[in-house]
Design a binder for these strands. Sequence first.
DNA 1: CCTTGATCCTGTAGTTGCTACAGAGTGTAT
DNA 2: ATACACTCTGTAGCAACTACAGGATCAAGG
Lengths: 138, 138
Amino acid sequence: MKKTHSGEPLKRGTLAKKLKCNLETIRYYENIGIMPQPMRTPSGHRLYSQSDQERLRFILRCRELGFSIEELRKLLSMVDSDGYTCGEVYALTQKYLHSVTNKIADLKKLERTLKAISKECAGGDTPDCPIIEALYLD
Amino acid sequence: MKKTHSGEPLKRGTLAKKLKCNLETIRYYENIGIMPQPMRTPSGHRLYSQSDQERLRFILRCRELGFSIEELRKLLSMVDSDGYTCGEVYALTQKYLHSVTNKIADLKKLERTLKAISKECAGGDTPDCPIIEALYLD
DNA sequence: CCTTGATCCTGTAGTTGCTACAGAGTGTAT
DNA sequence: ATACACTCTGTAGCAACTACAGGATCAAGG
């Protein structure tokens, strides 16, 4: 058992466990170019530095917040160029926030519809369910 | 120009236009077995009967409501067996309604987070955006 | 030192729910 | 007759992963 100092480079599996993501996801992010090619041990195993780890955490957080990979790419290119301004990031975030707000509205409408069509139906043993009818008929 | 009586079987393209879905989607639903194999003209063109049309509309509506294909399969198998009870349909609907309600809650949380991290940021010309920092740092 | 089992490597195929082609065969309007 | 729209088939592509196969390498126990 090796003692792990924090700040030490980690292998793929260890990093995946630490950040609670799938092992293959990390390689996937490398393939699509949003994670850098990490250092390798002499035998070819990947080694993720502290800053690699931070970048992955950033990516995972953004994904968790629901940013698409393309939106993430934009965000990352701002970060990478180090030439972003607050305004640019704000604009991207607001645009995304907007889509989230819209999605909520859509889902609420859907919720209302589902509640409405299932209200008639107490869930008894009878066939001729009003839910099916609501969906099936004109 | 041929006069179209309502109730007449339609070809794929016409049905797609009528129900406002993509042409290929109909064939896809046939391939995965949720639409029946329709009649064919002597030369092999698909012809959709009135009941085919109703079934497709049912499918499209359920999809629009966000039911997954698997959930839809269950719903359809109930309809097809004609042996469903109100209770079964109700259970499926409630389960799905639950997932919708959860999704709304998740998105609202996300909305709050996005608003919170973008509040600090007025959108000026300065680098060092608090949004990036909120996502990047520990 | 050697073996065993965990971990790593690569490339590729599968997932969901479509959508879009290519290349060939029809249908229809003028 | 010819042009053009439509249809047919199988297959490939999309997002964003996830899972595999078949092989190399590493770490720990005996």
